[in-house]
Computed example of a mutant assay.
Amino acid sequence: MNIVVLDTGCANLSSVKWAIHKLGYNVTISKDINVILNSHKILLPGVGTPGSAMEELNKNNLINILKSYKNPILGICLGMQIMGKVSYESVETNNLNIFDINVRRLDSKNFVLPHIGWNKVNYYTNNILFKGINPNSWFYFLHSYVMPVNKYTIADCYYGSLFSAAVQKDNYFGVQFHPEKSGNNGSKLLKNFIEI
């Protein structure tokens, strides 16, 4: 199986790669079109801004390839956000528009931003991504921007207000948390994704 961590120039590529490697799978970090076209699974991680990530995807002619990809793809944190329609972080950025949902600053009320640390995730569909994971399990977050709860939401989280912790549309999955930093629950979720 060809598993690719898509190289968006972000900082957490290696940690995602090693989390998959520890599960016993070979994985490649790449932005090469041919490697991506021949992959069976893509992970789209990200730490940074939507503008820089989209610029990198555009520079490497990957936008249309990602939008027409037919195998499972998992966006992690920023990777999930750039699957949305428009992001309003620092500058307004047009994203991949796989999910026709805008990404906005989390309304955290009196809670400090960024949202850093462990929080409970409530999934409310029998989605393959959460197979074997207990409801209200803990996952690790590091973010200030979110997709609101919407028609694609398969799990939510509360931090001042509810937001989408995970979304799915067809073969596209996204998680706002970092499974590669979420211990056994994160490992199980990554394994579930790879085995789809």
Rank of each mutant, 00 (worst) to 15 (best):
K67C: 12
G117W: 08
V103C: 09
N150A: 14
I65A: 12
N94A: 10
Y123I: 07
I73P: 10
T125W: 09
I82N: 09
N126P: 13
D170K: 15
S87T: 05
V121G: 12
S108Y: 01
N119H: 11
P45E: 04
S144K: 03
L106I: 00
P148I: 05
I36L: 13
E89P: 06
G117A: 13
D156H: 13
I36E: 06
K59Y: 09
H40L: 08
D107A: 10
P135F: 08
N60C: 09
N97F: 02
W118G: 10
N119E: 05
L78R: 09
S144T: 00
G84N: 09
N94P: 05
L43P: 02
M54Y: 01
L78Y: 03
P50K: 04
N71T: 10
V86Y: 05
F139D: 00
C77F: 00
V146D: 03
N150H: 03
Q81C: 11
G51M: 10
E56Q: 13
L113Q: 01
K131C: 12
K131P: 06
W138G: 06
L129G: 10
P50T: 04
A166M: 08
H143Y: 00
L78A: 11
K59P: 11
G51N: 15
C157P: 01
N136V: 08
Y159P: 05
S108T: 03
G48A: 08
L66E: 11
L62A: 09
S108G: 11
F111Q: 13
I76N: 07
R104D: 07
I133Y: 04
F130T: 06
N94I: 06
N38R: 14
M83K: 10
N71M: 15
K151A: 14
L106W: 00
V103T: 12
M147F: 04
H143I: 00
V47T: 09
N110F: 05
E56D: 15
I98F: 03
S164K: 09
V47L: 10
E56A: 15
M80Y: 01
L62M: 08
G132Q: 04
K131H: 13
S164R: 05
T93D: 08
Y88C: 13
V103P: 01
L129M: 11
N126L: 14
M54A: 12
G46E: 02
M83A: 14
K70C: 12
S90K: 14
N61Y: 07
I42R: 07
N119Y: 05
S161L: 07
W118E: 02
V121T: 14
A155N: 08
I82H: 11
I101G: 12
S164T: 11
S164G: 12
H115I: 01
Y152F: 12
C77M: 02
N95H: 04
G117L: 10
N71F: 06
I76W: 03
N150L: 04
A53N: 08
E89F: 02
A53W: 00
L96Q: 03
L62C: 07
S137A: 14
K169H: 12
L162M: 13
V86G: 13
K85D: 14
Y152Q: 10
P114M: 06
K85T: 05
N95Y: 01
N34R: 15
Y159E: 03
N122M: 10
G84Y: 02
L96M: 08
N102W: 00
N38E: 06
I36D: 06
